[in-house]
Design a protein around this nucleic acid. Structure first.
Lengths: 189, 189
DNA sequence: TAGCGTTGTCAGCACGTGCTTACATCGCTG
DNA sequence: CAGCGATGTAAGCACGTGCTGACAACGCTA
């Protein structure tokens, strides 16, 4: 039988629950009690393990963005990012698309936004900026990320959209073609 | 002297204050007392005139989106939208750029989001979809709007960005060039 | 001026929130 | 088994929030 008391396990359960709820209904509208309930533990543990709700958000955000960045070569970064944002069966619930980029907006302006920008957006910008030799590389990179952000929001928006129902591959192709006018060395794989 | 008691004036003051605060720090983080204080009136009036905080949001949202749509021909819509989003002195506080599109994300998932989609995003989608003859016109239109949304968020994000400091005209040109691969009949004016 | 509807203020209720504290229970180690 | 730190729980505090009701000030009209 699995240990009845396992600190790292409950810690992870809290992280998972927090991620799901933050992306699902936003940081502000998610209560600590919601998170604990979904994780199946007492709400006081949130504070024992993370100190505060904001720090928990920080922990949630810091996790997956860096992974993708480390695993995927720059040239394929955009394609992979789009695949995640647009992933899932058309019309069905999108799982991995609700990525940390989405939460950037969900979080809204506030103390966490600045941290988020540094820890998530900035490394991506840097990586994408390396894909062009133009002097305004960073501007182009941010334009690209802005699109990914907007896409993530639009696709996951309640009320449905033509984007959410369209064929992900076709959408990806459209976006990549348009983006190729910004970043030259992009690989569509 | 201006009337000491003018219902329509205070109503408008509340609308203005709400707009500024909602766009500035988001719906959830804005309190009714904040709004009333900025408007220089008592917070109870919010409920007298609008019934609830959510209905006030609805009133704020319904206002400006339709205006632009009615005043500007389809071909120039995109250019005008971008001009607003990117407007303002580089680095300085952007005023009109904090448009209703921004609030779509700031509001986050919630009851207001669906209404917002219907009343703001949908008409824009329709207008932009008419700019191409491709069968996936709506998808292309939503892709475009997603970009505008992401741009609005990125530009107004605290912590600064290369985008916010760049020359608006140059950025606009980059975006419009990329967008021309999606919508053919776009006018850059 | 007297009356009265409109506009604005004041105080407070009810509730949900983040967070804390004191205590119970587990499971490892001697 | 005894002891003890690590893990989990229950209860509640302090505070901010949306919202309400009773009341006061205004300004129009007769």
């Amino acid at each position: 039988m699995t240990r009845r008391k396992d600190a790292t396990a409950t810690r992870q359960a809290l992280l998972d629950a927090a991620r799901e709820l933050f992306t699902g209904k936003g940081f502000d509208r998610t209560t600590v009690r919601d998170i604990a309930a979904l994780a199946g533990v007492n709400q006081a543990l949130v504070f024992r393990y993370f100190g505060s709700k904001e720090e928990l958000l920080g922990r949630v955000l810091a996790e997956p963005g860096a992974a993708l960045l480390a695993d995927v070569p720059r040239e394929r970064l955009l394609g992979e990012l789009l695949r995640r944002v647009l992933s899932g069966e058309p019309g069905k619930d999108r799982e991995s698309g609700k990525d940390s980029m989405l939460m950037l907006a969900m979080t809204g302006p506030g103390p966490a936004a600045e941290t988020l920008r540094r820890e998530v957006a900035e490394p991506y910008t840097e990586a994408l900026a390396a894909l062009t030799d133009e002097p305004d590389a960073r501007v182009r990179a941010e334009l690209t990320l802005a699109w990914v952000l907007g896409l993530s929001l639009t696709v996951n928006m309640p009320g449905g959209s033509a984007l959410a129902d369209a064929d992900p591959a076709a959408v990806r192709a459209l976006v990549l073609r348009a983006m190729s006018t910004l970043l030259e060395h992009t690989d569509a794989h």
